[in-house]
Amino acid sequence: MTSQTAPPPVEDERRTPRRQLPRLVVGGRDVTSGVGFVVALVLLVVLAAVTTENFLTEQNLTNLLRQMVTVGLLAYGMLVVILTAGIDLSVGSVVAFSGIVSAGLVADLPIPLALAVGVAAGIGFGLVNGLLIAGFDLAPFVVTLAALTTIRGLAFVYSEVPIAPEDPGFFTLGTALAGPIPVPTLIMIGVFVVGGIFLTRTPAGRAIVAIGGNRETVRLAGISVKKHLVLAYTISGTCAGLAGVILASRVGIAQPSVGVAFELDAIAACVIGGASLAGGRGSVRATLGGVIVLSLINNLLNLHGVQSFWQQVLKGLIIIAVIIVQRRSMGERA
């Protein structure tokens, strides 16, 4: 009943197997993690250096280093949360609140204490987010969206007008230099180094990564999912608080309206770095790469004097392009 068509002998030359580079796994070997970024970075730097006069000036580079601190700190916290398959939309509002509170307190408190209170506010907000999400089993998107408006509101309640402390000591944290490198940049790098070790080498960090992969398995392995979720959001809140205080100190004026849509940049940095919003996958190093790429794009567009609305359009398109290149180089299925 069958046509016994003998299939022709196999002649076509060996098809080379599709290139499949290992993915970026926290703790896994990141042999290939560089490739995508190095290409993107080199392209951006060359582009910037060739098409603008000011890119390679000391002033611009210092500026670049300073500007990446906010998104950098937010991105690390965001990564921790994304690894658990969550999201933290409230970080932009926390930046505003922490900044304005510390600026406001400078009049009454010693400066270090005022700054510490700003960071502590971030810790507190993160803790509340985490407790709501883990304790009541609420969706992270919903909880942190509610936190976004609540905390923004609180910032305006604290002060409707920007606060610019007169004490020059307030600016020290944000503007100090260590050699050629801004101190805030060093703080950010410190957060990434310690944060990287935390995620790859401590039981709590590994638990956070594992929860995003399969929380049932983690729970049955005797690890408290709730506790680690709270920890993850607290870390994100802490980073946001720190970012807010540093930002206020750098620009010297704290505005209740600052930080709108910062969460999106932070998420973009993680995703450019290969993190999966489904959780369990993401790399600290690659996220830092994402932060640098994002900052370079901003800087480039600024130097070219691109009008700000067009900047947003271009940035969006460039982010998509970078992500596509990045995914390809990681051998992700199209």
Binding site: V25, A210, N214, E216, V218, L220, S276
Partner: peptide, 8 residues
């Protein structure tokens, strides 16, 4: 569902 963490 409850044995492995597939992403690790």
């Amino acid at each position: 569902r409850t044995g492995i963490v597939a992403s690790m």
